[in-house]
Nucleic acid binder design. Structure first.
Lengths: 193, 193
DNA sequence: GAACTATACTGAACCCGGTTCACCTTAAGG
DNA sequence: CCTTAAGGTGAACCGGGTTCAGTATAGTTC
């Protein structure tokens, strides 16, 4: 409960250092970085890590939460600069990018996703809301079909973002996104039930 | 190296029991079942488990390998009974089913997928081959576009199969599969680069 | 600016769960 | 039967996340 009382100066510094250290480790592909390592990187002892985060997983969650928040800030700008369908396409690609950044985190997150922790549920909700906004704009403009919601699309994208294998995964992701986008486009020759 | 010498009768029995116990545990959603539990279920001691499987992960891998083998037997029958595009659609849905069965295994597999272990690489190759076959049949018949390969499609499906959340995940999966399928269909109004 | 105390930090010890291995059991051939 | 190599057992080990009693310090009060 951060509302209780502002953190002491050193505590805040350490907390930030821990988050930064963890992010660095994950981005470097060290998804399984040991708590001791993360603590060392941050220049503190393990105990300090546990003062700020209930558990190792909680730390991962917090890093993830920040990452998601950053991503979810994008749609506003996109909708101002592009037509709705293009904005949607761009955001889908951003999701891919986001996955690239979190490549190392994917493994770290596996347990969280599996556990269906509230953090992940939240994140999904946020991202789905972003997509809903973009989809609504597109279907309003008549360029995107109206029978798909953000939740569904997010799940589809979730897969695309799960590519871990090396060698051209980015091209693959882009191609798949294009494929999905083809399915999303509004066309007269397809009749929905 | 199973080619060396046939297993002793009791050894074979125990090995089978272990695989069955592990499969049961995973299917029951006990993705994190402890080795001791699995061993107990199989009516043996942990040491026996380790006599048959290098490591816990190796056991998971073996269960998965069997699962994949079973799935990859499907295309032949499908192609005999349906038109190529319908066969493809059916197989995509089978993939979803496969994921449903392995719901519990997904978590167990997370590390394997992340580690890019040869088992998973193999499995991907097998499944991609299945899809290639179906895609080829479809594009031969002129009903499926020819610019998507099995590897790409598998990755797209991989995401669909990663749905863990409760509540209507199956409907979601089906809808997404339909979406992808729309993207895959051969139509005059789309020109590829 | 010294004393005070709530807050924060430290790291050795703890615990859990996968893994090992020295010792015991038994299937299968003679 | 007897032999023996294959197989089974489970207590002990070990790595890594987690705890907590002891220690340090930011911020406040006089």
């Amino acid at each position: 409960m951060p509302s209780s009382r502002p953190l002491r100066a050193d505590a805040q510094r350490n907390r930030d250092a821990l988050l930064a250290a963890a992010r660095d480790a994950f981005l470097a592909g060290e998804a399984d970085a040991h708590v001791e390592d993360i603590a060392r990187r941050a220049g503190v002892a393990v105990g300090t890590l546990y003062r700020h985060f209930e558990t190792r997983e909680a730390l991962v969650e917090e890093v993830y939460r920040q990452e998601v928040a950053e991503l979810c800030a994008a749609p506003s700008a996109l909708l101002e600069q592009h037509a709705p369908d293009e904005a949607l396409r761009q955001f889908l690609l951003l999701l891919v990018e986001h996955a690239a950044i979190g490549k190392g985190m994917a493994a770290a997150l596996a347990s969280i996703m599996a556990t269906d922790s509230p953090v992940f549920v939240d994140a999904r909700a946020q991202m789905a809301a972003c997509l809903d906004r973009l989809l609504a704009a597109g279907s309003g403009a008549g360029t995107i079909r109206a029978d798909v919601d953000g939740k569904t699309l997010l799940r589809a994208m979730g897969g695309v973002c799960n590519l871990r294998a090396a060698e051209g995964w980015r091209e693959d992701a882009t191609r798949i996104t294009a494929l999905l986008f083809d399915g999303l486009r509004c066309r007269a020759d397809i009749t929905r039930d």
